[in-house]
């Protein structure tokens, strides 16, 4: 039956061993890509005609910003799967995503502020993208706060799952309203936080960093997932050999 792969993915012992096996296959390529991207971005790529070497912050800001949104979406999808089909492994994925997403959202905020600083002259500017990023950080903190406040794992999984789905519906609305609000009060900021039209030598390292960060996310997710799966297993015998190994 075609669904067997789906059911096997849902079985904790299979996922635990699969995650353990796959982690290096994501970790090493991620490391190589990031190192190559850094080398390309910091050394090979020419300085930007407008922002000079300051633009090189994009090689850490853009991947972090991409991570903050991609991880939240992954979390919401995993939570929805967990809620609809009652799959504990899906909830374990969602639980593993949150801290990763939150940490890179914070990194995106700081790097975004550092990048804007030369232009704005201040460390914080209510720029629409930075403001959306800040609100996204609060969504993460709300998710993790709710999860921590509920002792029973199953209830924490399902309640935070609903919050993640409600949150992901609101992310575009928040982004639109923040951009709309910002356009009211200021001319759009001159700085191109968005992906500027840049030369290949500048673009390639950026794509490497984006892919590298994504693979890094999967690697960390797989490590955390094993822990989360274990903590949701009650009496299954398969834990015995896994834990004693």
């Amino acid at each position: 039956m075609t669904w067997t792969w789906f059911h096997r993915l849902a079985s904790p012992p299979y996922i635990y061993t699969l995650a353990a096996r796959l982690t290096p296959w994501f970790a090493w390529p991620a490391g190589l890509l990031i190192v190559a991207g850094l080398w390309g971005g910091l050394v090979l790529a020419p300085p930007d005609y407008q922002q000079g070497d300051g633009f090189r912050i994009i090689y850490v800001h853009a991947p972090s910003a991409w991570m903050s949104l991609m991880v939240y979406t992954t979390m919401a999808i995993a939570a929805a799967v967990g809620l609809i089909w009652r799959i504990k492994v899906a909830h374990a994925v969602a639980a593993s995503c949150a801290p990763i997403g939150a940490s890179f959202t914070f990194a995106a905020l700081v790097t975004g502020a550092l990048w804007g600083q030369p232009m704005w002259g201040t460390y914080w500017e209510w720029d629409p993208r930075l403001t959306s990023e800040l609100i996204l950080l609060f969504l993460y903190l709300g998710y993790m706060g709710l999860r921590a406040a509920l002792e029973d794992t199953q209830r924490a999984d399902r309640a935070s799952g609903v919050l993640a789905v409600v949150g992901v519906v609101n992310v575009p609305i928040i982004h639109y309203s923040v951009t709309w609000w910002n356009s009211l009060h200021q001319a759009p900021t001159v700085m191109r936080l968005a992906k500027p039209e840049i030369a290949a030598s500048m673009l390639v390292p950026l794509l490497m960093m984006l892919l590298g960060f994504t693979l890094f996310f999967v690697a960390i997710l797989l490590v955390r997932l094993r822990g989360e799966v274990l903590s949701r297993e009650r009496s299954a015998s398969w834990i015995r050999e896994v834990v004693s190994a």
Binding site: I135, F138, L139, L141, G142, G145, L146, L163, V166, G167, N170, I173, I174, Y176, S177, V178
Partner: peptide, 10 residues
């Protein structure tokens, strides 16, 4: 408040 305020910003 932490859960509700971010969603109420729009």
């Amino acid at each position: 408040a932490l859960l509700t305020l971010p969603l109420s910003l729009p």
